[in-house]
């Protein structure tokens, strides 16, 4: 059981990287990006494609791809998604759903339907023993540390910086924020830029840790979404803990029957929605 918990927490680390970007975009502008999971997969494939051409350290790849994601996220929000925002969620949902379908089929056309993984330079096999029959991988630990750092960084940024204040301002009262001189289109674009950076990180880690396949996107989206809801909207630590809960639930399910892991995770999500609709860790401060 101890092993199950450890693996659940490590899986939760990855899921929180999936979830933070979704949480950020919804929190700042009530925007739900259905292509979120597909974008994780895309960044995994971009990493794989680059690594197949040039021999590059996967962590150098992160240093290179995350800034690219920042720029593309900003542009994507500024030129595409900002046009769809409004009281009606329909346009943004249809457009990101359409992009999701395009992304999956395009990836299949380019990379075939087979799952692939990114060579982590042997890191994914590296581990150290905790007990005689149990080892903990170095890569999952790095991912978890990264997730904690990102959660902490986002939460701190929201509470203590001018950019964080701008995010909260457009989220609280968009019109009034604009009266204060904020350009909400630009603030939104910065939120999406950050979300894309997190997505790129998540995609590279996912493809190093296991594999990515062109049609993986939707299930990654659902895991990210479940993490946000389980944790309770409004704080990044909530999202982080929600991801931990989902990771644990899936691992416990897997432990009993390999076919039940995902299903059990979904059930926990539904139970929480039914009995604690504000999530397990609703916002308390800030």
């Amino acid at each position: 059981m101890f092993e199950v918990i450890i693996h659940g927490v490590l899986l939760g680390g990855l899921y929180s990287l999936f979830a933070l970007g979704l949480s950020l975009m919804f929190g700042v502008m009530r925007l739900t990006n259905i292509a979120h999971g597909d974008q994780i997969v895309i960044s995994g494939f971009i990493g794989i494609a680059i690594a197949s051409v040039v021999n590059i350290n996967p962590f150098l790849l992160i240093v290179f791809l995350v800034p690219c994601a920042l720029v593309s996220g900003y542009a994507f929000q500024y030129f595409v998604l900002n046009r769809t925002l409004g009281k009606d969620p329909l346009p943004s949902l249809v457009i990101t759903f359409g992009l999701s379908i395009i992304a999956q089929n395009l990836l299949q056309e380019i990379f075939s339907a087979n799952p692939r993984s990114l060579d982590s330079g042997g890191l994914n096999t590296l581990g150290f023993g905790i007990t005689s029959d149990m080892t903990v991988g170095v890569l999952p630990l790095i991912i978890l540390a990264c997730a904690i750092a990102c959660t902490f960084g986002l939460q701190w940024m929201f509470q203590h910086t001018a950019l964080g204040r701008a995010f909260r301002a457009v989220s609280d009262e968009k019109d009034i924020a604009e009266l204060m001189g904020l350009n909400s289109s630009k603030v939104y674009s910065m939120a999406t830029a950050l979300a894309f950076a997190l997505v790129a990180l998540a995609g590279l880690f996912q493809s190093m840790r296991t594999t990515v396949a062109p049609t993986d996107g939707p299930s990654l989206l659902l895991f990210a979404f479940e993490s946000v809801i389980i944790g309770g909207m409004g704080s990044f630590w909530g999202t982080f803990l929600g991801a931990m809960t989902l990771g644990l639930a899936q691992q416990i399910g897997f432990y009993f029957d390999p076919g039940w892991g995902i299903w059990f995770g979904h059930l926990v999500f539904i139970a929480i929605l039914a009995f604690k609709p504000n999530g397990l860790f609703p916002k308390t401060v800030g």
């Binding site: 909260r168 301002a169 609280d172 009262e173 019109d175 009034i176 009266l179 001189g181 350009n183």
Partner: peptide
């Protein structure tokens, strides 16, 4: 609105409309 406030017009909106998270 941002341009107008920079030109020197500010408003106290009806119903106060403070930023509740702040």
């Amino acid at each position: 609105p941002g341009e107008i406030v920079r030109k020197g017009v500010a408003m106290v909106p009806e119903g106060r409309r403070l930023f509740p998270s702040m």
